Simulated assay, not measured.
Amino acid sequence: MHHHGYLWAGSKQRFDEEALRRPPPPDPPPADGRLELIRRYKEVKAEFPVVDLPPLETAYWLIKPRELICGTWDEPKEAAAWLGQRLAEYAPRFASESDRDSTRLKTLANAAAARLDWGGDVSHGFPLERPTFLSLALVCCSPNRAMPELGCPLR
């Protein structure tokens, strides 16, 4: 097992486009259904795998383009260290003063190492200065515990 790190920072309005952050339903709408539903289904089916927006379910990062991977680590502590570095880097921009607390940020990184160690994924989001949002994720790979059918994006 190894771990991939992902970072997304962008407009909160774009982050809130949830239709592009979830996979399309397994079955398309009926061919004689509303044209708007058919159009939207086709758009989401084409865009979800390639759009850089963080997926609502963390494991789905694994189907995104490999170029979105910010790092890959064999050891949970190494992946958690990357998370801790990103948290420290962005902390001055966090909108909430409590989110900037260095003890809290170290606790998040330590908890990430423990979660990754048993095969869980880690995902955090932080409002930055308006209107920006930061999303950080660490995803277990080969296999992913939540979705073992998803392959490694590096293969």
Rank of each mutant, 00 (worst) to 15 (best):
K77P: 01
L134A: 12
A31I: 13
L37C: 09
S102R: 14
E43F: 15
D52G: 14
L150V: 04
P29G: 11
D74I: 03
F126V: 10
C152W: 00
P28F: 08
H124F: 13
K42H: 08
A111D: 08
E43D: 15
Y41D: 10
R115C: 05
P49V: 05
V139T: 15
H3K: 05
N110T: 07
Q85R: 13
A112F: 08
D74P: 05
R21A: 07
L83M: 06
S98W: 03
A114I: 00
G33M: 04
P131S: 02
A114S: 00
P131E: 01
R86M: 11
M1L: 05
V51L: 09
L62Q: 10
H2S: 15
V139N: 14
L138A: 10
P153R: 01
D32W: 06
T72R: 14
E17D: 14
A31V: 14
F94Q: 03
V44S: 05
T72I: 04
E149I: 05
E149C: 00
E97P: 03
L56G: 08
W61H: 14
F94A: 05
R66D: 09
Y60V: 00
C141I: 13
G5R: 02
E17K: 13
A113K: 00
G120K: 12
Y60I: 00
L105D: 03
T72S: 14
Q85C: 06
W73S: 07
M1D: 05
A111H: 01
A146M: 09
R155E: 12
R130Y: 12
L37M: 14
L150P: 01
W118M: 06
R100W: 07
K64H: 09
R130F: 12
C140Y: 11
F94H: 03
M1S: 09
P25Y: 02
H4F: 07
K42F: 04
R145Q: 11
M147H: 12
E78G: 09
R100Q: 15
A113V: 00
W8R: 01
L35V: 03
W73V: 04
C141V: 15
F126N: 10
I63A: 00
L7E: 04
R155V: 07
Q13M: 15
A9P: 02
N110S: 09
P148A: 06
N144D: 12
W61V: 02
L154V: 00
R22L: 04
R40H: 14
T103W: 09
E89W: 08
D101Y: 03
P26T: 10
K64R: 14
L7R: 11
